[in-house]
Nucleic acid binder design. Structure first.
Lengths: 142, 142
DNA sequence: GAAAGTCGCTTTCCAATGGAAACTTGATGG
DNA sequence: CCATCAAGTTTCCATTGGAAAGCGACTTTC
């Protein structure tokens, strides 16, 4: 049997990690794991997602066997997305990640504040300071 | 105490999930959790990452308090990145995700094959054919 | 019977992000 | 004084992402 390694560029597990270690994918899959949901309901629940990205994300999840898609001949047509057994196992892991975020958000915010304060301190009105400030801004650290 | 919700567009936890639910971040953090690593070592170990993205990723991880950075006055200069206690708690969750990927990759590959095969099939005028055609078209797999 | 609304998308357009590769900095050995 | 190495940064172009509009099929409202 093959040896899988996410650190290898061409390993299938790398591709899979690319699919699942994604903000929108995580939010959408977790939401669907709570029960079947329709397209526009997802759009409203997952604040900030665009229909384009939602559509792409659902396609990928469907192809990977993590969710199913069912069409109901109502008017207007209704489409329900539901979690599969395989998807359920993944959503449990994603839930752990999301819970970590909610548990540790304050520690992270504190770290960011500390970091930004230190960056501001170590440069006065010097030329080097101005240069660094520009660097930091370029690095998107504000 | 504020109520955090990753589904809310402007919640700090959403920003945090955005940082951690990312392919490169996950790979880099997990690698560093195995012991202090230098920049170029990371670059070699995490196959496919560019220096630009590695640099940005390390900055973000540092600002979020998940890794530390130590400079050694060797020649040429050496820089070591190490995991922090906070980062260690996260890397354990990320490891769970990566393990899920390695455990379930074959099921996902099978699902993809099944899905793509259905898309490639001739599909006559059967009810099943029509149903599949709808699924495939919706998934944009032509 | 025309206009407006619903759902589930797709398309278009522009801005932001990502990757490949060249360049920089600073100290040293040849 | 040229080449080298670590640790990045910068440049350039391609891919991706988001906002908004369009679409098809059908009902409800005026």
């Amino acid at each position: 049997m093959p040896v899988y390694d996410v650190y290898a560029k061409n390993c299938p597990t790398r591709m899979l990690l690319d699919h699942i270690a994604d903000k929108w994918t995580a939010l959408v899959l977790w939401k669907i794991s709570g029960g079947p949901v329709r397209f526009n309901q997802l759009r409203r629940d997952v604040e900030g997602i665009s229909t384009k990205v939602l559509s792409q994300t659902l396609k990928r999840l469907g192809r990977d066997g993590l969710i199913s898609r069912e069409v109901f001949a109502t008017v207007p047509v209704t489409v329900e997305y539901a979690i599969t057994p395989l998807g359920q196992t993944l959503s449990e892991k994603i839930e752990i990640l999301a819970e970590w975020a909610e548990t540790n958000i304050e520690a992270v915010l504190a770290a960011q504040e500390h970091f930004d304060k230190a960056a501001g301190d170590e440069m006065g009105a010097t030329a080097a300071g101005a240069a660094n400030r520009r660097l930091i801004q370029a690095a998107g650290m504000r």
